[in-house]
Computed example of a mutant assay.
Amino acid sequence: MRVAAIQMRSGLDPDTNLAALGALLEEAAAGGARYALTPEVSLIFPENREQLRLVAAPYDGHPQLAAIGTMARQHGMHVHIGSLPIPLEDGRFANRSVFFGPGGAVTATYDKIHLFDADIAGLDAYRESATYKGGDKAVTASLGEFTLGFSICYDMRFARLYTSLAKAGADLLAVPAAFTVPTGQAHWHVLLRARAIETGSYVIAAAQGGAHENGRATFGHSLIVDPWGRILAELDHDAPGVVFADIDQAAVAEARRRVPALANARDFAAPGLQG
């Protein structure tokens, strides 16, 4: 199966982002992709809750999602919107992935589980949970001969999620992201390769890249990793584009045969939790 990771430089206007995405999906389809993954916050990349409230549309009847369903059907391709903000009743938002089948219908959604709440030396505290509500359910979906496991950006730092997805049958792990430049330079490649190695799965990571309207700068470097941890393809820059790789179930079986970590894993009592 040929898969594609789409790299974007999303701004604040959903329709402008949709037009840019449409051209990139055409490129992915022309390149033979049966599945295309877009980055986190593909359709709007806000910096704060006020910007979100101005343009974030409800999930039901969402105009840009309806257009993407039409594109998926026209291209006969699975289209995975890495994420977009969805308003919730409590005033916060879900950071939601939406997965379209080649017929244009939504076949799965996933709300980002892990939220970045941190006190950083020299900077104000960052509380993603003040704006977003974390999900509480891991999600897999059928993708031809593969099973797709869902995650979003900061999730990649939590290995237990990916082990759980792999144990549930996932052998292709999606990681849409909007990594900052410093953390991207330090951790992007090593974390994605680690998630592939420890689960014996393919990892596809679609990234935001470059300087955005909201003042943020993101790392780019969308890539696809094989189950042995080798980078099959990468956009070695932060500009919009599409990267392709051909993936094969045999590589999953071989990696898991050579290092049967999933089969060998055991439950154990952690210090301080006994009895």
Rank of each mutant, 00 (worst) to 15 (best):
E128K: 06
T131I: 14
Y126H: 15
F116R: 11
H114R: 15
T140G: 08
A130R: 15
S142H: 00
G134H: 11
G144D: 12
A105Q: 13
K137E: 15
A138N: 13
Y126M: 13
A105R: 11
I81H: 10
E145A: 07
K137H: 13
T147G: 03
F146G: 04
T107K: 09
H80Q: 14
I86W: 08
A118M: 13
G134I: 09
K137V: 08
L115E: 01
F93L: 03
G134K: 11
S129A: 10
L123D: 12
D136W: 06
E89W: 08
G122H: 11
A108R: 12
G101Q: 03
I120C: 05
E145D: 15
E145T: 09
G82Q: 06
G144W: 10
F100N: 04
V106K: 07
Y132Q: 03
P87H: 09
G103C: 04
V98I: 07
E128L: 09
D119H: 08
F93Q: 04
G144L: 05
L84K: 15
G82V: 04
G82M: 07
V98C: 07
F146V: 04
S83C: 03
T131A: 04
S83H: 09
T140M: 06
Y132R: 01
A141C: 05
Y110G: 01
K133S: 14
I86M: 03
K112G: 01
R96S: 04
S83L: 02
F146S: 08
D136G: 02
L123F: 15
R92W: 10
A121N: 06
F93P: 01
F93A: 01
L84N: 15
Y110K: 05
H114M: 11
G135I: 03
V139M: 07
A141N: 05
F99A: 12
R92P: 06
A108P: 01
Y110T: 03
T107V: 15
R96P: 00
L115C: 04
R96E: 05
D117H: 11
H80T: 08
L84F: 06
L115S: 01
D111S: 02
V139N: 07
T147S: 10
G134E: 05
H114W: 04
F146D: 05
R127F: 12
K112W: 00
G122D: 02
K112I: 00
N95E: 12
S142Y: 00
R96F: 01
D136I: 02
S142V: 13
D124C: 00
L88H: 12
L143R: 10
I120S: 04
T131N: 13
G104E: 01
A108M: 01
V106R: 08
N95D: 13
D90V: 07
P102D: 09
G91E: 09
A94W: 14
A118E: 14
V139W: 03
G144Y: 12
L115D: 00
